[in-house]
Design a protein around this nucleic acid. Sequence first.
DNA 1: ATAATATAGGACTATATTAGTCCAATATAA
DNA 2: TTATATTGGACTAATATAGTCCTATATTAT
Lengths: 161, 161
Amino acid sequence: MLRISKLTDYGTMILVHLASAKDKHLLPASDVAESTHLALPTVQKLLKILTKNGLVESARGTDGGYRLARAPEQITAAEILDTLEGPVAITECSHDDGHCDLEPNCQVGNAWQKISLAIRAAMNDIRLCDLQNPPMEFPLRHTILSKSGHKPRLHKQALGK
Amino acid sequence: MLRISKLTDYGTMILVHLASAKDKHLLPASDVAESTHLALPTVQKLLKILTKNGLVESARGTDGGYRLARAPEQITAAEILDTLEGPVAITECSHDDGHCDLEPNCQVGNAWQKISLAIRAAMNDIRLCDLQNPPMEFPLRHTILSKSGHKPRLHKQALGK
DNA sequence: ATAATATAGGACTATATTAGTCCAATATAA
DNA sequence: TTATATTGGACTAATATAGTCCTATATTAT
Ligand code: FES
Ligand code: FES
């Protein structure tokens, strides 16, 4: 259903490993690779991506390495997915962008897109610490606009292309 | 986020088209292709898949064709995704099945899987008629276990695999 | 300075998945 | 028997993902 790629899985493992690190200590990629049993080049690649997206921070040189940029409670699943899965928009329309000659009443792409956004909103409630130590059940209590049926959040998110 | 494939999008368009058909009338694949502006071979392939999975029913021969097997209110988004995206399970663990030598405390794959299931549960509330004519907002009000508040967030250790 | 360590950036290949097409077989009705 | 239309599956092409490797840059210690 929600299909996450292997790299996203790996990336999450890496984040979880960093989350369990001592304090502000920096872990070199080689250490992370060893601990997670993932191939070093893959770990290097992922750590670079995570760094570029602000989830982890890095230092070069001797005793350099990586660590979480924030506490595990302040990193959301939405961020992790955005970072590792990329800004993949749901298929918007089977016809090329903007021009749907057929049916102006076809809201199919639109509908899937709204569903996707609702899910994404729900992902904001799940945090790295939840992935680290998952609860019995994950709640998904959102609508695309708001949780109380009002109009507060407009979620004008640009889903790019 | 939730990434649906092009074929799933096409398939949804086809379902919506069938949903708008007169009564119990059968539409041949060629008709569907023309109406949706999709390539005929693709439409044929998708209709076969939809038929095999019980979402539409078919008749052969002259005046044969396809129609929805049930009313649009009785076809859920979950079914559509299951049918068109296949039974794609989320990546369970980066190590081969059952054998995670490293860390017994790694619940990463497990966590994503639970999230995926929660989303799938939410998809049971969305129906073909909603995709046809999407509401302002899609509600996602589920947890993996129940919908009535059940003391979530307990961070209980999940049972293994 | 120089050497050693480690990240940054990106190019590159290999693999897997998705998308799309086509053909032979079967069923139905006129 | 002919025309219509689905069924089943094989097949190729296109794209996305996974994985590796090379060069440049920054940092620290000697
Ligand atoms: S086919 Fe273009 S909006 Fe649906
Ligand atoms: S690496 Fe095996 S369960 Fe997480």
